[in-house]
Computed example of a mutant assay.
Amino acid sequence: MNKPIPAARDGYRHFLPIPTRWMDNDVYGHVNNVVYYSYFDTVVNEYLIRTGVLDVEHGATIGLVIETQCNYFAPLAFPERVEAGLRVARIGSSSVRYEVGLFKEGEPQAAAQGHFVHVYVDRATRRPVSTLPEPLRSALERLVVEAGGSSTGTGEERA
């Protein structure tokens, strides 16, 4: 198995600063691995809510996570701030592959990086939608990067 190398900060389109919390640390003195996944979820959903394409209470279309993965390169610990970078690697007819890099504040390379895949479904039936709603697709296209991490959009977005 080949372990990927840490991604560079400039390969991500949107960033969200996330303060670590005392409870994020485990007995080994660093952020516990399960917390990294909550950071992934936080940056993705913050972006979707901020851009107005996710209504968590009443939206007809919702995203369900069907796959997730993370590689760890350097520890993060309380009281550091994490800068979560977000990009989109693939947009399908009903699915999206998000890629997230977690950076120690100001560091050029990811301390951890990974991905998760959302399948967008009808809220009532939980069946995949035939096509992503246009406002969602448009918001996602702003985050698309080409293979190798180069951006296809216009400029970096910050929360």
Rank of each mutant, 00 (worst) to 15 (best):
V65S: 05
Y72P: 03
V53H: 05
P133S: 12
R126M: 14
E146Q: 13
V35E: 03
P17L: 12
V100S: 02
N71T: 15
R90G: 08
N2Q: 13
S138W: 00
A110I: 06
L64Y: 10
V27N: 10
V121L: 10
A7P: 05
L54K: 06
G101F: 09
S130W: 00
A8W: 11
R21F: 07
P17W: 09
A84S: 11
T131C: 09
V100M: 01
R158Q: 14
G52W: 09
D10K: 05
Q109N: 11
E156G: 12
S138Y: 03
M1S: 15
T152Q: 14
Y36E: 01
L143D: 05
V145D: 03
E67R: 11
G29H: 07
G106Y: 12
G114W: 03
R13G: 11
L86Y: 02
H30I: 00
S138M: 10
G106T: 10
P108R: 09
T51N: 03
T131A: 15
F15E: 08
R90M: 06
A60M: 11
A112M: 06
V88D: 01
E80P: 01
V43P: 00
A89R: 13
D24K: 08
L140F: 04
A8Q: 08
F73Q: 07
R9C: 13
V144S: 10
Y72L: 06
R13K: 13
G59P: 00
F40T: 02
N32S: 11
